[in-house]
Amino acid sequence: MLELRLVQGSLLKKVLESIKDLVNDANFDFSSSGFSLQSMDSSHVALVALLLKSEGFEHYRCDRNTSMGMNLGNMSKMLKCAGNDDIITIKGDDGSDTVTFMFESPTQDKIADFEMKLMDIDSEHLGIPEAEYHAIVKMPSAEFARICKDLASIGDTVVISVTKEGVKFSTRGDIGTANIVLRQNTTVDKPEDATVIEMNEPVSMTFALRYMNSFTKATPLSNTVTISMSPDLPVVVEYKIAEMGYVRFYLAPKMEE
């Protein structure tokens, strides 16, 4: 028996929108402490890790650990039928080949349930080693989205370099080059507007902008984004979900052979 009631249903809608274009199918792993998902994109270049802890739910019941394979496109179609203010409940029964999404309007005058077919997914759960990062940049998520979008109109790859001067995003393409430098800026009215650079050692790495732009679909989930880099490791682009968990995107770098 599985029953999860999320008052802020729009959060689940936003989570789905942030990952559905990167990952087609994924196993949702439910346990008493919350639910998680880990999946690679079909090209095996990026990996999504999602965690939503049980504390964030108004009601959370999961009698035994269970894994449900879902097509994220289909799940997104169903969740789009929920209003932004709706309360969403996920229900499942042991051994069932379906999951039910129930949507309640805030005034309880409209209640809908959508039953979705589950699927068997052969997933490879990868071990992500703990890492010490050379540099961690925390910045407004909207600013990061703007930079990725702007640079993608010039080139296909971005070089992200962190030095004590700041963080530089560079690209080059047929029409020319672009460099955007952000300096650490903590003298802002609101903490979420700050750019904070923690650097142990300078680092410079190259990534595909197509993936970075896909990650920025998570922007509505959080005012800030954290970018963690070390040479020879995938970059981690993390959007925290207030008091509940996170969506993390890992992207393998482009490297000289």
């Binding site: 690679m40 095996h44 270049v45 990996l47 759960h125 071990g127 995938p234 393998a252 490297m255 000289e256």
Partner: peptide, 14 residues
């Protein structure tokens, strides 16, 4: 041109 690495070359299957 740098080559795109696979995520599988960094993270291990159990």
């Amino acid at each position: 041109m740098p080559r795109q690495k696979s995520i599988l070359s960094f993270f291990q299957k159990p």
